[in-house]
């Protein structure tokens, strides 16, 4: 019997049972924009950037399982508009001053803005009041830039075996926290944790190493994230 397949934007692509739409697409060379998804971590479907339409239903492709004969739309004007809006929301609901951010040029949120061709958001900036926790000698959390993707939570729990991070609060008050105490220095978090590298934005950072790559040579200066055409 032949491999099971689905239809992605009119193209038949194979999948391995158990794969998500996003994984199947990636194996077939189609990069679906994503943010909270990171290979090696359990998908959590929190950011919705990976939105696609599967058999007419709007779903997050990083969590939705591929199934036989499923018809998936990804690259359509309305889904692109939705994806843009989601990324714009992430910008306006935090405080993102890219010009002075250590992560600039390496940041996946910023890179998605570039790839999607966002020049300014359609929504009002919220300018929320958020804290910076710089209590730890070697690392810091800048809540102004946190997008609540839970990559640090999942990495610390599943790869570092530590549970150094957790969420507290709900809705607009939800924020990432050092799990064992109120301050980062009171936790088991360490400068060598893989959780630090997992943060897609400039929220979880190592101290004293910022701005080491010159402008022009940073990962997303010349090449879009996902390595494909801009505007998707």
């Amino acid at each position: 019997m032949s491999e099971p397949s689905l239809i992605l934007d009119g193209r038949e692509i194979p999948f391995v049972p158990g794969q998500t739409i996003l994984q199947a697409a990636e194996d077939a060379g189609a990069w679906i924009p994503r943010l909270c998804h990171k290979p090696g971590l359990e998908p959590c479907g929190s950011c919705r950037v990976c939105v696609v339409r599967a058999n007419g239903r709007t779903v997050s492709s990083c969590t939705f399982p591929a199934s036989l004969g499923m018809v998936v739309e990804c690259d359509t004007p309305d889904l692109l508009a939705m994806r843009r809006l989601i990324v714009e929301m992430l910008f306006v609901e935090g405080n993102h001053f890219c010009m002075s951010c250590e992560k600039s040029g390496h940041c996946e949120l910023q890179a998605l803005g570039y790839r999607l061709g966002i020049t300014a958001p359609q929504l009002e900036y919220q300018f929320p009041r958020r804290e910076v926790d710089a209590s730890h000698p070697d690392i810091l959390i800048d809540h102004n830039r946190c997008i609540l993707c839970a990559r640090c939570v999942r990495t610390s729990r599943d790869l570092d075996g530590k549970e150094a991070f957790a969420f507290v609060g709900r809705g607009p008050h939800k924020r990432i926290a050092a799990s064992a105490g109120s301050r980062l220095r009171d936790t088991s978090a360490d400068v060598s944790d893989r959780a630090i590298d997992a943060c897609p934005v400039g929220a979880l950072l190592r101290k004293r190493v910022g701005f080491s790559v010159p402008v022009g040579r940073r990962p997303y200066d010349a090449v879009p994230i996902g390595g494909q055409e801009v505007g998707r």
Partner: peptide
């Protein structure tokens, strides 16, 4: 520029 499109550095005072 960022000041016109986002408020930019002067908008730090919004916090």
């Amino acid at each position: 520029g960022d000041c016109a499109t986002t408020g930019g550095i002067p908008a730090l005072r919004n916090l």
